[in-house]
Design a protein around this nucleic acid. Sequence first.
DNA 1: CTGAAAGCGCTTACAG
DNA 2: CTGAAAGCGCTTACAG
Lengths: 358, 358
Amino acid sequence: MASLGKVGSAATINDVADRSGVSIKTVSRVINQEAGVHPLTRERVLKVVAELKYRPKLSARSLAGARSFLIGLLYYDPSAAFVGDVQQGATLRCREAGYHLVVESLHNDAPDLAQQVTRMVSALQPDGMILTPPLCDNPAVLKALRENQTPYVLLSPARNAKGIASVRMDDAKAAEEITNLLISLGHERIAFIKGPEDQAASGLRYQGFLRAMKAHRLSVDQEFVCDGDFVFASGVEAAHQLLSRRVRPTAVFAGNDDMALGVLAAAQRLGLAVPGDLSIAGFDDSPAASLVWPPLTTVRQPKNAMARVAVEMLIAANRTDAPEVAEDILHRVLPHELVVRDSTSRLKEKTNVQSKRR
Amino acid sequence: MASLGKVGSAATINDVADRSGVSIKTVSRVINQEAGVHPLTRERVLKVVAELKYRPKLSARSLAGARSFLIGLLYYDPSAAFVGDVQQGATLRCREAGYHLVVESLHNDAPDLAQQVTRMVSALQPDGMILTPPLCDNPAVLKALRENQTPYVLLSPARNAKGIASVRMDDAKAAEEITNLLISLGHERIAFIKGPEDQAASGLRYQGFLRAMKAHRLSVDQEFVCDGDFVFASGVEAAHQLLSRRVRPTAVFAGNDDMALGVLAAAQRLGLAVPGDLSIAGFDDSPAASLVWPPLTTVRQPKNAMARVAVEMLIAANRTDAPEVAEDILHRVLPHELVVRDSTSRLKEKTNVQSKRR
DNA sequence: CTGAAAGCGCTTACAG
DNA sequence: CTGAAAGCGCTTACAG
């Protein structure tokens, strides 16, 4: 066993160099897949690497070189469902590329937020950071990152800024599609529950809803548009308002799943059959969306893929030969997925009497 | 600005030493809070540290010293809800201690699992690893960690092993308490839905249920004990079985929330009022538990606290002056919390006619 | 295609 | 209470 390297301590680049009869520089070249190493030399080195189970230490590479092989993920916990998938995508892509993901949960309103970010990046020297909402819209965080010269990519930011990389889906288009689905099922009296005004997705989803309604020449009764704040309770409240009207909507499109779940609960308590008496659609495909009956029709964000793309952008930007990236490639929009389940169905004929088509 | 250190590049320990007129060794002592530095010297150094915004780089500390200030968290994604809280606790505790959390999502059945773990720890050289179920029960993972001499703590492992640190809650006791709650509400015909056999929690929760029933001299009809596998659909199925019996249970205790949600959905579809006709209790306090109506009575695991304790154990074990830890301190059991919500209520008098008390 | 030297920014082991 | 020297394990910049 002693021939397999020093017992008890892991092999280093020197051990590999000695054993393969080359310099550490050549071992380094092989490890980093640099061109210009004789195939036979490469082969010999790789063989020894395998024998000695040599793994270069990140700390040494990071200290000596320009890369740390660390990507940071910053998030604010309440959006746990969103972060879970993002993290999954990021961690897998990192592994494929030999990188590692360091996560930090930050409070978006913390007074020392900038300092926390600075502390993290100056200690870790990550090759890049990924920011999720609402941190990706927090000027203090972005400023701290810029000052510490750390590249970053924003996931679903409120708006695209010139020169700042972002990855998102098309919220408006997805909302339009959900609305179109409801319309195609015969619904015309479709209610919408908005999200909080300070979140960009709220407005975009509402716009998509309006666009679809308008395209089909369906009127949007303001009594059918409710304010919500993306939490269960606001869905319940909106449902009570909507369902107490003399003329009820036949379908409700909630700006997110949590509110849609609230509508579902309220409807069922009032004795309405879903989707028989009321179709309900949400947005997000949260875990709970398939943990109720009927399971919710909703939109799945490509969170996993968004994170993978973000990791790729950061790794690419860190290569020494990184080309200047064109502005339009800096802002990626990934395809989403409509998830049609049992909370929506074709409108019953009889309730379709008083058409609002104009 | 030039007086605040080299422009464009961060301050190093040399900059601090120069400016405070001491050696880098003394700066190191101050940074590491070692004893035996003159108070005035310490003060002077700290002042310069603040002026220069000096932050020691992890890579250099890690390469030179015995610590990396990195803690790893290994998880298998399907348990996302569990992991979210764990990660939250771990990341916060890490920050307090100047550590950072590196996460990796592993597939429990991956053929190269051990290699993945080895790759991670040999590259990162983390000061410790935290494992969540089911990875904490995976021999291949534990073996890889041992071989790489990386300390680890298991979160809620199936069983305690001598000399291996673990943090958990008392599943059996919590299940007993939930059962006692139902009994105290007048229920006697209480059904239980088990989890999958290969998960330790399943058995423990069932034992707790049995213990409470026995203590109150209530018979456990085997027709009221269903098999499940911790997913929604199995709750639905169990509910259909239970509710099709001539004598129905008045309360159902599901081994976890997802199954309880299934029971809730099934009961409501059958036109039963919850909790009026049927009380339902779950286990886990998953996010969805409060996103339905009625919200679920359940048990909250101290996941956040468990993770904090795990981080503390790892940091403590890494100190050079770390004492030998006694076996009983190696296995920590943290207090849980009963979350009583609206899915459980007092038994209606009339249905209580045929008492099963013996 | 390959290598010798220097150095990244810290801690360790030792000396005083 | 403080410091000079060596070294951690790599990459960089350069030379051949």
